[in-house]
């Protein structure tokens, strides 16, 4: 049914009359590019400019050039540093678990067993739940004394003292990762399952005739074949995890203390709760730079994978 992409032979034959083709291409691209510029280049330049000022929303007239003052302050600001490191821990932790769990689920769902199709459909539910709903639901399921999680764990005798999941830095971070894993593992599994389903059968048959062991088939045939799908899932998920706001806002709001602050939340608070626009701009600018350092190679890789076929 599903077949491997066989795009190569009718690959884009770029139009030859180059000069003549420039105009329509520009017209076609213009609206999209302008829109994208409005949420990327404009903020980028604005943030860069504003980050050199001490600017408070409440006192637009008191705007003052302070050079690198905001930058000097942010590298000494424990909350900012924590926001950045937490973002890394959160993104890599959550996406790592999603990939492992997603692969396992995809391998099981790929089996030709009764009920798997129904299970696949039900598995889609978490990724369809509006993120703020997911976060708030988790918050109350995890919060003793009324949370069901603690109540039933205790009832089943798994724990004897109620656990305050959101009450310690470590378990709160774990809860945030768990929320993301719950929300998005089905997404990863869905993509990998599509990859598994599109495996050419002759390869597998050839391998089994060769007497290759199952794990060898997995490592030498399945995994390389899945590479493209894994890459897509990792890149899309990592980027989303770096940008996470709704999850942390709804589940922990940075607590306990400031131990689960993520970069997005730090920027939001400085800009829209304290109205320190200049300082927030500096933090946002550094965040953007860090993100582009991490994600540019990934996006490049992804683009190569998409276009090279």
């Amino acid at each position: 049914m599903a077949t491997l992409s066989t795009r190569t032979h009718d690959a884009p034959i770029a139009r030859k009359k180059k000069s003549k083709m420039n105009a329509p291409a520009i017209i076609l691209l213009a609206p999209a590019v302008l829109l994208l510029l409005s949420v990327t280049l404009y903020p980028f330049l604005y943030l860069l400019y504003t980050s050199f000022f001490s600017q408070n929303l409440m006192n637009p007239s008191a705007k003052a050039w302070i050079g690198f003052g905001n930058y000097a302050a942010l590298f000494k600001d424990a909350d900012v540093i924590r926001g950045f490191t937490n973002t890394l821990v959160f993104a890599f932790g959550a996406v790592g678990i999603q990939m492992i769990l997603g692969t396992l689920i995809a391998l099981i769902l790929d089996k030709d067993l009764p009920g798997m199709k129904a299970i696949t459909i039900m598995m889609l539910i978490p990724m369809s739940i509006t993120p703020i709903v997911g976060a708030l639901t988790w918050k109350y399921l995890l919060t003793p004394p009324f949370g069901w999680v603690g109540y039933y764990l205790q009832k089943l005798g798994i724990i004897d003292q109620p656990i305050v999941f959101l009450g310690s830095g470590f378990s709160a971070m774990m809860s945030m990762i768990a929320l993301d894993v719950w929300n998005w593992t089905p997404f990863v599994a869905l993509i990998l399952l599509a990859g598994l389903k599109s495996r050419p059968h002759d390869q597998l048959e050839a391998a089994s005739i060769d007497g290759a062991r199952r794990y060898q088939v997995f490592i030498y045939i399945t995994l390389p074949f899945l590479k493209r799908f894994i890459l897509i899932a990792v890149v899309l998920r990592l980027i989303e995890a770096f940008k996470n706001f709704t999850g942390v806002f709804g589940l922990t709001n940075g607590g306990p203390g400031n131990s689960t602050l993520l970069a997005s939340l730090v920027v939001y608070r400085k800009a829209l709760e304290s109205f320190q626009i200049g300082y927030a701009a500096a933090i946002a600018f550094i965040f953007l730079i860090l993100l582009s350092i991490i994600t540019t190679p990934l996006i490049g890789r992804l683009q190569k994978e998409i276009t090279n076929d």
Partner: peptide, 9 residues
Amino acid sequence: MVPAAVSLI
């Protein structure tokens, strides 16, 4: 990769 929180300001 541009986070909503960044372009929001």
